[in-house]
Amino acid sequence: MSFITHNYQDLIDHPVEMIAFTKLEFDARGISHKMAITGKHNADIKRLAKDLAIICTHHINFFNGAIPFDEYLFLTLVRTNAYDGLEHKNSSSLICSRKEMPVSGEDDITPEYTRFLVLCLHEYFYACWIKTIKPANFHQLDLNTENYTQQLWIFEGFTSYYDELSLLRTKILTLKQYLTLFAQTITRVQQSKGRQKQSLLESSYDTWTKFYQQDENAPNVIVSYYTKGALLAFVLDINIRQCTNDKVSLNGVLKFAWENYQKFGLEDNTIRRIVNDLVRGDLSDFLNDYLYGVKELPLQKTFAYVGVDCVFNVNKKEVSNSGININTKGEFAQITTVFSGTCAQKSGLYVGDKIVTINHEEVSVETLGRQKKWFSQAK
């Protein structure tokens, strides 16, 4: 069997795997989709095919059926404990844990299986929303070096917003299940002290030097364009709806970009111009506060518009926590992170310090159970 690619970039965008695998097939709006599963598993293939068909059909409908492939392949490697994914033009490479695959006889959707479906949807969404619509400077990539963009809050953040939202819209998740997931995203962002130091725009641009080269101080100075980008997408979505009396939403922004910017891509200010045109106004103050700046997102006000109470539940007993992350895999409990503004930092604790005793009691894996109140952020 022979395969031909048009150029080197096309070659590296088509992953190849030669191994025994389990194959499932389904159609979504008449388009052939396949998943090849390798690794030991006992997945419910019929259920997986059914759920994937639902979410892929929803995705194709979102872009009005004008998707950029004639067939699609999910390459899935099942491991004991792993989770990752990479998008390609008409395929995606996925790695998941065995517990995240659906099992025959389990009708309810578990958090683990939800996580796998989110991964599938996230990478599938990219076929349109990064592999086709992309930053303008990504149309001519320099493969010899890193390629920078200020727009990862758009491509990664918007995708992270829509992957979970799509599971709600297809009724695979109930509203309660969806809000539980969204609450977890909010918690991760709010626990990040870096959200007060780094803007989403900076997070996008600095990804090569900071996000992918994190040191022990990273939790204090960076924020994720995935999670906070998803929250900004939600706030922007509702803001657009408010400005237009629910006649326009973030859906319209993505669809307009899809219909008009495939050839040349998005400049750094393109989404801003599209939003302003659709709302017939100027959202400069909004973006200055929440995209270029580090002002707290108005989540409670935004949720109130859709009839949801957003309450930040702070347990006063947990506020005074240790302020550190520790690693207990070695002989001693070793500090891996010291969070800024905490008692630990003020006490002079440093990354690399070894905690030998607490209250004259030797610290060990066995004693940490009794001493866990000192390590409420321990990992």
Rank of each mutant, 00 (worst) to 15 (best):
T5Y: 15
T5F: 15
N7F: 00
D10G: 03
I12D: 00
V16P: 12
I19V: 13
A20Y: 09
F21V: 03
L24C: 03
D27A: 12
T38N: 12
H41L: 06
K46S: 11
K50M: 10
D51Q: 13
L52T: 05
L73P: 01
L73S: 12
F74R: 10
R79T: 06
A82H: 15
G85M: 12
C96V: 10
C96M: 10
D108A: 15
P111G: 05
L117S: 09
E123V: 03
A127P: 01
W129P: 04
P135Y: 05
T145I: 02
T149E: 04
Q150C: 02
Q150S: 13
W153S: 11
I154Y: 08
T159V: 15
E164M: 06
L165M: 05
K171G: 00
L179C: 08
A183N: 05
R188V: 07
V189G: 07
Q190D: 15
G194L: 11
R195W: 02
K197C: 10
E216F: 12
E216R: 01
V221W: 14
S224D: 14
K228A: 10
K228P: 02
K228I: 00
D237K: 08
K247R: 14
K247I: 07
V248H: 03
L250N: 06
V253A: 09
K255G: 00
Y261M: 10
L266D: 10
D268F: 10
I271M: 15
V275K: 04
V279E: 03
R280A: 12
D285C: 11
L287V: 12
Y292I: 03
Y292T: 05
Q300P: 00
T302E: 09
F303G: 09
F303V: 03
D309K: 15
F312Q: 14
V314T: 14
K317Y: 04
S320M: 09
S320T: 10
G323A: 06
G323H: 07
N327H: 04
G330M: 08
I335S: 04
S340I: 14
S340T: 12
V351F: 03
N359P: 05
N359G: 11
S364C: 11
E366L: 06
R370K: 13
R370Q: 08
S376A: 11
